[in-house]
């Protein structure tokens, strides 16, 4: 589904990603771990199509298509979803209006009829339950005045609404208490099918107790330096990242 080959990315001339290789197949959950400032969020931003990131080498192939030629919105319409680490507040745009516009544009792109008001509201009610958002969400402005936990739940709610093929959750666990973490993780697990894939970017192993990965990668100094099973995450939890650093430095 997603194939990243020798990806080099710079921000304002400074190289952040220095040759990332990654392959993700349908039905899989991958975790990308690593210390702060090693390029985890950069990887998510490049896949989303955010401006200011220069791909200097390599490529990202998604469902057989080169992502670099696609607009931000077309990537989303093709089924890519990023759960952001810091979701933006947009005062005055209601969540209902936001999601209805997004969903209907995606449907149009795929040659489907738009949802009418009643169908849309039914869908919203149903998906709100996935992340246990019980209060009336529809009239609230996007993320305005939301707590950290609410923002993250709102990200997973959007994921539930848009039913992406590839979801990348960037530090979704940061700033969450244990209850919110469980709710978010349950939401992600609930949405998992054999046809979609998830990348969980995280600093800690904690989230992986709830979202069990098939593969764990360690990103360090702009490269994937280690790949393993879920046991690797446990080992990292126990031993920290220093041994990875040492292994990497001595291999140089």
């Amino acid at each position: 589904m997603l194939k990243i080959e020798n990806l080099h990315v710079s921000i304002k001339g400074r190289e952040i990603l220095k040759g990332v290789d990654l392959q993700i197949n349908a039905g899989e959950v991958h975790a990308i771990m690593g210390p702060n400032g090693t390029g985890k969020s950069t990887l998510a931003s490049v896949i989303a199509g955010k401006e200011g990131y220069d791909v200097t080498e390599g490529r990202i192939i998604y469902k057989g298509k080169d992502l670099m030629n696609m607009s931000i919105e077309d990537r989303a319409r093709e089924g890519i979803f990023i759960g952001f680490q810091y979701p933006v507040e947009i005062p005055g745009v209601s969540i209902a209006n936001f999601m209805r516009t997004a969903l209907n544009e995606i449907r149009e792109y795929r040659g489907l009829d738009p949802l009418n008001g009643a169908q849309f509201l039914r869908l919203m009610n149903e998906k709100q339950k996935v992340v246990e958002l019980t209060d009336k969400l529809s009239n609230r402005s996007v993320n305005e005045g939301f707590s950290g936990g609410e923002k993250k739940r709102n990200e997973i709610f959007q994921m539930a609404m848009l039913e992406p093929t590839l979801s990348i959750l960037d530090e979704t666990d940061s700033g969450l208490d244990i209850d919110a973490l469980r709710i978010v993780a349950n939401g992600v697990n609930h949405l998992k099918t054999k046809d979609n894939a998830t990348i969980v970017i995280t600093h800690y192993q904690r989230l992986l107790d709830y979202i069990v990965p098939d593969v764990v990668h360690v990103l360090f100094d702009g490269k994937i330096v280690k790949t393993g099973t879920k046991e690797l995450a446990l080992e990292l939890e126990k031993r920290g990242y220093d041994w990875i650093k040492e292994e990497y430095e001595s291999a140089k």
Partner: peptide, 29 residues
Amino acid sequence: DDEALFYLRSRGISEHNARKLLMFAFANE
């Protein structure tokens, strides 16, 4: 706001409609 524009587009909304949504929000206050 560029950050807000990016956020809306990353959910599949065209740049044109994202601008309109933000302008509406601005005016509707």
